[in-house]
Amino acid sequence: MGTEGKQKQTMEASRKLDLPEEVPGFPKFGHIPFEGLHNTRDLGGLPAADGRRIKPALLLRSGALHKATEQDLARLLADYHLEGVVDFRTELERDKEPDPRELMEGVVFYDLPALAGETMGITHGAGLAKDMKALEAVSAQPHEMVKKMYPQILLGDAGRVAYRSLLNVLLESDGGAVLWHCTEGKDRAGLGAVVVERALGVPEPDVRADYLATNLFARTRAEGILDALAAKLPALRGLDADIDSFFYAFADYYDAAMDAVGDAFGTFDAYLAEALDFGPGKQTALRAKYLA
């Protein structure tokens, strides 16, 4: 391996996880201790516009629901009166690991892929075999590969449609909870949370903290994926930093997305208004519905 390759490998191996600052009045970042869902959180309690806070048990962010136990699903229906699920995954991901719709009677599902097609490192939808090949191909700079996808999620046509639709689903809900998710609840669902929180007037530092909070709940899942990959291909042992790049939230991912929005629209409010057709009037209506 050349000097440059060794430097890149050392840089990846030494990368530390970014952990969030606590948000007063938002204990454990709204984490819901389900049996099968490791990264499901309630935005209720986050400080928002005009000194108000997001109402509890209405806005939920999560990873995919296929690992939910029957008790988890029963809690979502009984405790949160779940009425809608927005799925940001691709069709391939949905087919491979479908949400348990047959066990969620009365819930409306919205299939809104936030990325067009398969994108390794974001969707994880192709299965372990293809993931391993992709890992080998990009192992020199997996972190940079994922970071480059973040602007595409917010600014691409698919992402604009997905997040515009999410906001409209929230506006039109009948009073029950709406849950949005991707695969891990980090990238597409994480940026969906950013969109919702900014529309509700959550202060930017708290939006950022909520994004990074995934790192408090993702360790077991990431280690499990690493073990599965290494079992199938021993050469991948020791690629902890590569796996970290795919399964954890990093501040520079978030910054890349926000910088891209700033370059394209000037402000996030302008992005909401121009890219998502969600200007001040709709924001006021959303805040009246979800803030107290």
Rank of each mutant, 00 (worst) to 15 (best):
A213I: 15
L59S: 09
D42R: 03
M145L: 12
K16V: 07
T267E: 05
T220P: 06
A68R: 12
L77A: 12
L276N: 08
Q152C: 10
D277A: 15
W180I: 02
F217L: 01
E4K: 09
F265Y: 06
E21R: 09
A129M: 05
D252I: 15
D255F: 13
A270M: 07
P151T: 02
P151E: 03
D42C: 08
F278T: 14
P100E: 13
T220K: 06
D242A: 09
P33Q: 04
K28M: 07
D210N: 13
Q9I: 06
H143A: 08
E197P: 07
G279N: 00
S173R: 15
F246P: 03
L103T: 09
E70Q: 08
P142M: 04
E102N: 13
G156K: 10
D50R: 02
R287M: 03
Y80C: 04
L19G: 12
A249H: 00
R89A: 03
D269I: 11
P27D: 02
D72S: 02
K96N: 14
Q71N: 01
A116I: 06
Y290M: 11
K130G: 03
L73N: 07
Q7Y: 12
K282R: 11
Q9S: 13
G175C: 04
M104S: 14
A140E: 14
G5T: 11
L272A: 00
A116W: 09
D87R: 09
F246N: 09
G190V: 13
L229P: 08
V107Q: 10
E274M: 14
T284D: 08
E12C: 08
F278E: 11
G2Y: 02
R101T: 13
C182A: 04
R208V: 15
A209T: 13
D72W: 00
R221Y: 03
S14P: 12
A230F: 09
A273G: 14
L76G: 03
L77K: 13
R237I: 00
P142T: 05
P33R: 05
A231Q: 11
E91F: 14
Y80P: 04
G2Q: 10
G262T: 10
T40F: 00
G5C: 01
I32Q: 00
R208N: 15
Q9C: 15
D187R: 01
A199I: 03
G176W: 01
A270Y: 10
D255H: 15
G185Q: 01
L236D: 05
F109H: 05
D111R: 07
H66Q: 15
V196I: 11
A64I: 05
P142N: 02
K148V: 05
A189P: 08
L58E: 10
A64F: 01
A137R: 15
G117Q: 15
L65R: 08
L76W: 04
G30W: 02
I153C: 07
D206K: 13
G224N: 00
H181K: 13
L59Q: 14
L239Y: 03
A116M: 05
L77S: 11
A257D: 07
I225T: 02
D277V: 09
P203F: 01
H124C: 01
K130A: 14
L46K: 00
G51P: 12
R89Q: 09
G176L: 06
V86Q: 06
E197Q: 11
E144K: 05
A199S: 12
I54G: 08
Q152K: 08
E172T: 12
L59E: 10
G159Y: 07
L167V: 11
A231G: 14
N168C: 04
G63I: 01
K186R: 10
